[in-house]
Amino acid sequence: MNNQKVLLKVDDLKQYFPIKGGFFGRTVNHVKAVDDISFEVYEGETLSIVGESGCGKSTTGRAVLRLDEPTDGKVEFDGTNILELNKKEMNKFRKDMQIIFQDPYASINPRHTVRQILTEAMEIQNAVPKHERNDRVKELMETVGLGAHQIDRHPHEFSGGQRQRIGIARALSVDPKLIIADEAVSALDVSIQAQVINLLKKLQREFKLTYLFISHDLGVVRHISDRIIVMYLGKVVEIADKKSLFTNNMHPYTKALLSAIPSTDLEAKKERITLKGDVPSPIDPPEGCRFHTRCPFATDICRTKVPELRNTEGMKDGHRAACHHMEAIRSGEHQPTVNA
């Protein structure tokens, strides 16, 4: 894994959204949606970001594309820090980085035909010579499993799954290297979801695409990913290859998250770790480890000191977790203080 080429490198990324208030509409506080996260995406892999609502996974995706201007940090794409680029230079890079959104109906123009939708990006990027664009659109339609005869239809004439295929085709139209899929299959019915997941995997093999796959569905993530990042309240709590994350997870939050998913395996004896309470507000996140307010293992150090992402004995290379007590929890030395 480590000798692979790094396509995207995110360093100390921060995304704070100001909260305006008071008499003069001054900034009174910030929502710390993403607070100092770093990770790398290797060429040709699928890296997933999972977490619950408000953990900052979508914000991370948007910040990487500069759809929201990040507060601080570095985003290196293919060796260039794209946060330093001006608008014109950035537009060149946009050709290589595309995004697929959750709701295909909200993200494609309902008044355009599929042909217009798919040519627009090629026009803007000047990616394909004009006379070849028509053929390219037909080719794209077939690539994503739609018929070339549907080319002049409007989005409303398609079903949800087909619309998501249009969204995928649009992302592919400029021949990108990296695709960020933000809950791309979450709104689809399960039988359609499987079709779209298979399509994404096929496209990755064919076009050597790199995916940053943002999702809350750990079943889908287990199927599609090579590596996985777990986020909680704007921080990365664990990053690991797929196998380690599902079978050798270290962070108490990862464990709780996995144990909370209802399983269809009736035989499996599960010990559910029920977390108390809700995710705290990202405006005023807890001091120290952000998970300590809900963590059954929390002690004094967790309340004061921010844990670093680190690797320890028994963890594979590249597997890191941010917990003060992970060794002691694993050995059984440190037992839950509050039994939920």
């Binding site: 399960v190 499987a194 079943g219 993530v221 199927h223 399983s263």
Partner: peptide, 18 residues
């Protein structure tokens, strides 16, 4: 439906069409 506690080899089984 891919499950979080099971691995699937290759493609997911699909129900064709809609």
């Amino acid at each position: 439906v891919p499950q979080h506690d099971q691995d699937v080899d290759g493609d997911l089984a699909v129900i064709r069409g809609s």
